[in-house]
Amino acid sequence: MAEANGGLVIRPMDQFEVRPLFGGDMVGLFTITNVTLWMALTVVAVSLLMVVGSRGRALVPTRSQSMAELTYSFIYKMVEDVAGRDAVRFFPYIITLFLFVLFANLLGLIPFAFTTTSHIAVTAVLALAVFITVTITGFVVNGAAFLKLFWVDSAPLALRPVLALIELVSYFVRPVSHSIRLAGAMMAGHAVAKVFAGFAGALGVAFVIPVLAVTALYALELLVAVIQAYVFTILTCVYLKDALHPSH
């Protein structure tokens, strides 16, 4: 960033600003912003992998088709293993979440890109969608028996109300931790990268050191981007398992 008065001025949070793309300052409901652009690019990237990549329908897959199939069977197996066979009907929903988070994270790592998943608003909507889906599914599948999730039968009777309270609180904290984990991890990595990059600008000849640090950090961020997408998805599967099979 520009150095206004000679001092070291690093603004690590500026990269997360939501700006209108085509002039103006106001961000209204329908304004085309950088959020819109990068979400659209996410859709394009996912379509490139899953639709264009698999268009050959070859019996012996090409490289791109192989990647699409690996992604498909990876998530399918995860849903089947973690949430159970009857959760397979949620597979399209879960793979949509996974691919959106994965590609939003990865596209956000491109220099000068905007990371949509670093915003609490975005991840909170994702996590709330999971929370509402899970809760509704739990009550639809199990009826009132879903409340047994909070009533631990294996515990001593005196402890059960306390445990029920704890379980209830932890149930409602789930969407909070679910969303803040993803947004926080993304935000943290990008902010730290920005701080290091700012050091590189300020250090003159010794810029090599922060650049090396940023390079290492970038590799870590790549790992974190994939792992956070994986964790977001697998936690969705775990919550879904609770909804489908509430007995502990």
């Binding site: 939501v18 304004t31 912003t33 959020v35 608003a121 909507v125």
Partner: peptide, 9 residues
């Protein structure tokens, strides 16, 4: 900016 983000999401 929340309504905008949520809408596009």
């Amino acid at each position: 900016t929340f309504p905008n983000q949520i809408l596009w999401l």
